[in-house]
Amino acid sequence: MNSELVPLPIVIPLFAAALTIIFGRFLIAQRVIALSALSATVGVSVALLIEADEHGVVKMDAGGWAAPLGITYVVDRLSAIMLVTSSLMLLIVLIYAIGQHGVEDHHVGFEPIYLVLAAGVSASFITGDMFNLFVAFEMMLAASYVLLTLGGRADQVRSGMTYVVISLVASALFITALALLYASTGTVNMADLAERIPELSPNVRTGFSLMLILVFGIKAGLFPLFFWLPDSYPTAPGPVTAIFAGLLTKVGVYAII
Rank of each mutant, 00 (worst) to 15 (best):
M161F: 09
T149C: 10
A177I: 06
A170S: 08
M211F: 15
T185I: 08
Y182F: 15
Y163M: 13
L200Q: 03
E199S: 12
Q156C: 02
A194S: 10
V157A: 10
S124M: 14
N132V: 10
G152F: 13
S122L: 06
S124K: 07
S209H: 08
T162A: 09
V188N: 13
L193I: 03
N132L: 12
L168G: 03
E138C: 00
G186A: 07
Y145L: 05
M211L: 15
S159N: 00
F131H: 02
A183C: 12
N189K: 03
A191S: 02
L150E: 02
S122N: 15
Y163L: 04
L133M: 14
A143E: 15
N203F: 15
V169W: 11
G186T: 14
A179H: 07
Y182A: 04
P202D: 07
M130C: 07
A136M: 07
R153E: 09
S144P: 01
L148K: 09
T149L: 08
A123V: 01
V169N: 00
A143P: 08
E199I: 08
L141A: 14
F174Q: 05
V146T: 03
G152D: 15
V164N: 13
L141P: 04
M190K: 01
A179W: 14
T185D: 03
A154F: 07
T162L: 15
T185K: 02
A170I: 10
D155C: 05
I197T: 10
N203W: 13
D155H: 12
N203I: 04
P198N: 12
M140N: 09
S209R: 05
S184L: 07
A177M: 08
G151Y: 09
A183V: 07
M140Y: 14
S124G: 05
T187I: 05
L150F: 15
R196E: 12
T206N: 02
R196A: 13
M130F: 13
L141I: 14
V204I: 14
D129W: 11
L133G: 07
G128V: 04
S171E: 09
L200H: 11
F137T: 04
A142E: 05
G207W: 01
L210N: 01
L148E: 12
V135E: 08
V135L: 11
R196P: 01
V135F: 11
F134L: 11
N189A: 06
G186L: 14
I175H: 05
V169E: 13
G207C: 02
S209G: 11
E195P: 00
Y182N: 14
L168K: 01
P202T: 12
E199P: 01
I175D: 06
R153M: 11
T162D: 05
A136R: 05
M139Q: 11
L173P: 01
F131G: 06
E199H: 12
N132A: 13
L133T: 11
N132I: 08
L168E: 11
S159H: 13
F131S: 15
S201E: 05
V164F: 09
F137G: 08
S159M: 01
S159R: 06
G151K: 00
M161G: 00
L210P: 04
D192P: 02
A179C: 06
V164T: 07
M130R: 02
T176S: 06
L148G: 14
A191C: 06
L168F: 14
P202A: 00
M130L: 12
D155Y: 10
S124V: 13
